[in-house]
């Protein structure tokens, strides 16, 4: 059961572990990890909510569009659940 997700395209200030180049991009969940404390709260010594962490696989074509070096190559990154929406 492969699930398709989109990374939120927000640009909030703060300590964000979601790389900017992946925001707004769609990928497939590779595996589910965690829960881990939310680093956006941890970084400011606030009580941190435990969050699921998902490894999401993107194609280079999805990330870079026509500028992709090899469109079928892939990239995987860990994205916290609150940064993902169904796609």
């Amino acid at each position: 059961m492969v699930e398709r997700v989109r990374v939120r395209s927000d640009m909030p200030p703060g300590h964000i572990r979601t790389p900017a180049y992946l925001r707004g991009k769609t990928g497939l969940i590779e595996r589910r990890l965690g829960p881990f404390p939310n680093p956006e709260q941890l970084a400011y010594r606030q009580p941190a909510t435990p969050l699921a962490l998902l490894r999401v696989r993107f194609t280079m074509a999805e990330i870079w569009g026509a500028a992709a070096e090899t469109p079928t190559d892939t990239l995987e990154a860990e994205i916290y659940a609150h940064w993902l929406e169904p796609a």
Binding site: P19, T70, D73, T74, L75, E76, E78, I79
Partner: peptide, 15 residues
């Protein structure tokens, strides 16, 4: 070779 897929792992969080 072109037939080999490259998979980049961006170590963004706790792994």
């Amino acid at each position: 070779p072109d037939g080999v897929e490259i998979r980049v792992h961006d170590s963004t969080a706790d792994m």
